[in-house]
Amino acid sequence: MGTASGIIRALNSGVKHLAVKRFTLRYPEEKLKFVGDGYQFDPTVGVGIAGLKGRHMLFHDHCTGCQLCSIACEGVAEAIAMVKVPEGWKHNKKSIMPQIDYGKCVFCGLCVDACPFYALYMTNDYELSSFTKEGLIYTPAQLQVKPDVRQDSEIVIDERGATHG
């Protein structure tokens, strides 16, 4: 008797769940919304600003080619290589800037922590797949582009359950 009622109760709880709203995010059509514009770091106070650790963004007019980001990444993933850039920036005498290989990067953000000139941020862009290995290597020119992200879906909770609204 106990067994039968227990099984009925279990089935009932599954059936009740039919009335609960669907929680699945329909990914390519809907995209999750993140707080802020991505992970940034304030070197003066030594604390980061919360945000998604996605693809990096490089501000050419701040980067001095000091290589600190590359040194930080050496202990993590060796994803950053310093490459020559043609422009003769006054503040960047050696004309070198980071190039990031997303086939190796683990999105830890320690390079952002290392940059003392606010030149490297992380953005909300996480769709980085490519058909070739070379397509995963982002040159300084590609890193400069601000990603165009449309992310609007958030978790909404009401009496009928949680859903991605």
């Binding site: 802020g36 992970y39 980061g48 919360a50 999105f107 320690l110």
Partner: peptide, 24 residues
Amino acid sequence: EKLTGARVTHAYFVPGGVRNDLPA
């Protein structure tokens, strides 16, 4: 993800505290 910026491997704790404050 809101707090640390990553869904699975957060790299959030660090000797001396945490890497960023709570978001708004």
